[in-house]
Design a protein around this nucleic acid. Structure first.
Lengths: 338, 338
DNA sequence: CTGTTAGCGCTTTCAG
DNA sequence: CTGAAAGCGCTAACAG
């Protein structure tokens, strides 16, 4: 049913019906009541496409998904979506997924979005050190919010987790347990967050007066295989580490497995700390000490920030850094003397 | 830039430009070349909203997300999205996420979609035994494909995994290992797949001549806590089970943890089999024997099926059942005599 | 092969 | 407070 038809039934002009539906004040309460009631009854909903064309706004927000297939294996994006969705509903906006593929490259996809008015703004996550998407969106002055910072200098709206503080705290915890040979299993340094986490680790070592040993740092994929292999290889050193600080829980779980295969026990023989607090992490053996971040809440807040941007607010004030929380469980503890 | 402006630059009519861009045959190759080249140069992309309004098609597909927050903790939907996205790109369609919230209920959301022409079709997953969404979409004759079947009788397009065969095979494996007291940790029976999996388990027992014991079946949330508690409680029985068949890997991982806490070892003392083949599952201790399904491939195929439906194909032929694959690892083995 | 014309269904000035 | 009229930017008959 179209507005015209519906208006005819009510013996009103399309104009009045439209205004009543949009909750404008310049329509008598009685008429509005009737329109609302009848819309319910006849199940009339305005055609979104037409409204969008007229208003020049899509009422749709895009979420950029990672292009690496492996990235689909952690719940980060789904949790983020849960938060985004909640906030989106407040303004009756929708969420469009931007999934780059082999054919549809990242920038081509964004270009299409920016040019075709399909979305009013975009949410990104996990930027690289110099993220092409971020640069593109700044260049085109298109509203977007990023979960995480890049190395670029131009300002943009972001919500980031303070990875440096998080790993500083985690590393200090290991230091206080008496560890002095603390390995760091990091993500590849093209990810900005990897740099932050590394900085926290290094600073903690410095504060504790522990000399930094490059041989204790390994970088790889953020998955269990890397964790397992890296932990096993480090344990072969003449003076092996007594603790593993891992950039993600998946790496940590791999490390857990790695040292288990060497006949060692995490929590007593070796300490391990991760980051992400995956659902699994509290249920492995032993339960993993890890860092927890508020993902749905971040999604919600980022959406709010994006709406602000879309409404014309300046970027100032739309840059937030949140803290992660250390969740103490059983995969770490005092260093054991042998 | 609008089509009119762009056409003016080229000294052509909007019509010709539009047709050239859409690749219609009734435009001279020379003109088409020029239009395409100039569009590239001036970075002109047609306004999607306007095109949609005109054509009466959204070129958008909706994906219904689960409303229970807990459901966000497994990678199923993200993997599905990966497959859907790939196929969507083939037709330049987009993916709209339908995330029901407290305020925006499932059916209200669907109603809006059906009425507002925002999406041409919908993809659902994990239906309940009598799924309200499925019923609604059938009632309204709206194109949709569901990952899984319901208990309803009216036909609709689906792609389902043969959970019965999968659990039949898994249970038979345990039987061949000599197990006779095989526990089944299932999801709640309002989920259709839970019924299928249970049927497979029960049939295998029957074929093996093992009497069904209701006390060996527990139903609960599909998470680790349920697995841990259920396994521990069952181990307290006078004659405890020697094997656990679990409806999901998360339940299995919980069971793994549960029996570990009782001082028993999975794979030797007790056998455990899960379903999902989560990334984690090959990295726990011991690596989990489980059932693997092709999720991205299913997403891709479902999207194809949805396009067929949107293009007017009948439902016949758009109902597929795929098999899961048993991944043999180390969490199960021959029953041990004590 | 190309251009003219008429809407798609809605929102929003502008009058009344 | 309500209605008439003018498009938003595009596509598709229909002529030429």
């Amino acid at each position: 049913m179209t507005l015209k038809e519906f208006a005819k039934i009510l013996k009103l002009s399309p104009t009045t019906v439209s205004r009543a539906l949009m909750g404008y004040s310049d329509v008598s309460p009685k008429t509005r009541q009737r329109v609302l009631r009848m819309a319910e009854h006849y199940k009339y909903t305005p055609n979104t496409t037409a409204a969008r064309l007229k208003r020049g706004k899509a009422d749709v927000v895009g979420l950029f998904l990672p292009s690496q297939p492996g990235a689909f294996e952690d719940p980060f994006f789904l949790k983020l979506i849960a938060g985004i969705g909640e906030q989106l509903a407040e303004r009756e906006n929708d969420l469009l997924l931007l999934a780059p593929t082999e054919k549809q490259k990242e920038i081509a996809l964004l270009e299409k979005m920016v040019r075709s008015n399909q979305v009013d703004g975009v949410i990104l996550a996990r930027p690289t050190v110099l993220d092409a998407r971020v640069e593109f969106l700044i260049d085109h002055n298109f509203p977007f919010v990023c979960h995480g910072r890049t190395q670029g200098t131009r300002p943009y709206a972001y919500l980031d987790i303070d990875g440096k503080s998080a790993f500083h705290e985690a590393c200090l915890r290991l230091v206080h347990f008496g560890h002095r040979r603390i390995a760091f299993l990091n993500a590849k340094p093209n990810m900005r967050f990897a740099l932050d986490r590394f900085a926290g680790y290094k600073q903690a070592l410095e504060e504790a007066g522990i000399p930094f040993d490059i041989n204790l740092v390994l970088e790889g994929q953020m998955n269990e295989s890397f964790g397992r292999e890296a932990s096993q290889s480090l344990m072969q050193q003449a003076v092996p580490p007594t603790a593993f600080l891992c950039a993600t829980d998946r790496i940590a779980i791999g490390a857990l497995r790695g040292i288990q295969l060497l006949g060692l026990q995490a929590g007593t023989d070796i300490s391990i700390i991760g980051y992400d607090d995956l659902p699994m992490s509290s249920h492995c053996t032993p339960p993993l000490t890890t860092l927890h971040q508020l993902i749905p809440e971040a999604g919600k807040r980022m959406t709010e920030m994006l709406f602000a941007l879309i409404d014309g607010h300046p970027i100032e004030g739309l840059q937030e850094i949140w803290q992660a929380t250390l969740i103490k469980r059983e995969s770490d503890g005092p260093v054991t003397t042998r």
